[in-house]
Nucleic acid binder design. Structure first.
Lengths: 209, 209
DNA sequence: CTGCATCCGGGCCGATACTG
DNA sequence: CAGTATCGGCCCGGATGCAG
């Protein structure tokens, strides 16, 4: 992309990450190192040459590097994009109220709303294991040591199991849907939904970065 | 722009603000309502039809609205873009170490680094008035009631006056340049630079949103 | 003068085919 | 598996036109 040619941090930042698809590539890499084919799989709709172009650009700018196995991973500076990405996702949360329609979905993308909803470290947050069955593959949300993280695959002995379409799952995780609304959205639950509320941050609490 | 077609908050957000120039238009509007011609002036390099296109798109999506005088302004939702914009600017701060070269610059763009450096409300922050003479027009940084804001135009009786090129000014505001380095960067100061340090946030302090 | 619309050349995007 | 090559089409950028 052509540079904006402006001496402004926003413009110079967008010179690096403003290209189409670039931040979505970063979203994939925020989950950990990825092979080229994994990126293609996680970015339905991208053309292969564009993915190669973007990765070259990100590597040139020092956002992405190759590891020993040739996988792509974020540099320390690239990891810093978690905050802009979360900020955009938080701002765009109202857009998720519209149903997926024919939009593509990968269950790994749930890591983003989970990071936004269960942000930061909270010593008072209880441990909990949630298995989520939606999209292409099951996934586990784990609350441990006051932090919430997402790992691929099913859980061994989950406290809560959520099954259903992605919009319903996100509504339940956000706390926007109660048990009855969740059912009407096609979400079936095994376990007590109220455990989720204890994972969310109380409003006005201190943010840890 | 074509939609990414993904059920993901980041992708859906970028469907709205991911187009080229869009976030720079938002940057301008974060300073307050703007006429079309003011936007053109603050966005050197943009084509007039693109500005019109982007404004239409932002209006359609509910990010921007017209006020009684026909000026463009952010909606309540659009104001929420301050956080993503600040997050990108914070991430891109290292890119500002490279000198402006032939990049364009507007002194009003200093509002962004000022918002990032002197973020939030801090009751312990002393009142202070700084006049900055750089770029196209002078501008005043005011610390009042624990908050720091930028207003156009010179100050009546500033505690500190900074004159010089934009990269030097930003270095001084960040605290990256001491008095001697500032001079070597072409910045002349009237007043005590140490007053600036009292405006910056102590690391690890609580963030208020 | 403000606030756009139109036109057009060039470059980027998107889909497919192909290769080491 | 991990990209490169190619090509049509759309979007971007710059100049110009024009209505209120």
């Amino acid at each position: 992309m052509k540079s904006y040619g402006q001496y402004c941090a926003l413009a110079r930042g967008l010179d690096v990450i403003g290209d189409r698809w670039t931040l979505l590539i970063v979203r994939e890499l925020l989950a950990g190192p990825c092979r080229y084919s994994e990126l293609l799989e996680g970015l339905p709709g991208i053309a292969t040459n564009l993915l190669a172009d973007r990765l070259r650009g990100l590597e040139k700018h020092g956002v992405v590097a190759r590891d020993a196995q040739g996988r792509y991973q974020l540099t320390a500076w690239g990891q810093g994009l978690a905050e802009p990405v979360h900020a955009i996702a938080r701002w765009a949360a109202p857009l998720m109220a519209a149903p997926p329609g024919d939009n593509a979905f990968r269950s790994s993308w749930l890591a983003l709303p989970v990071a936004v909803i269960f942000d930061g470290t909270d010593p008072g947050r209880p441990p909990l294991t949630i298995e989520v069955r939606t999209g292409d593959t099951p996934l586990t949300i784990e609350s441990r040591h006051g932090q919430v993280r997402v790992v691929p695959g099913p859980a061994m002995s989950p406290d809560l199991v959520l099954t259903g379409p992605p919009d319903g799952i996100i509504g339940v995780l956000m706390g926007a849907l109660d048990q009855a609304s969740a059912v009407s959205r096609g979400v079936t639950t095994h376990g007590d939904l109220r455990q989720l509320a204890r994972l969310r941050k109380p409003p006005g609490s201190v943010r840890h970065r």
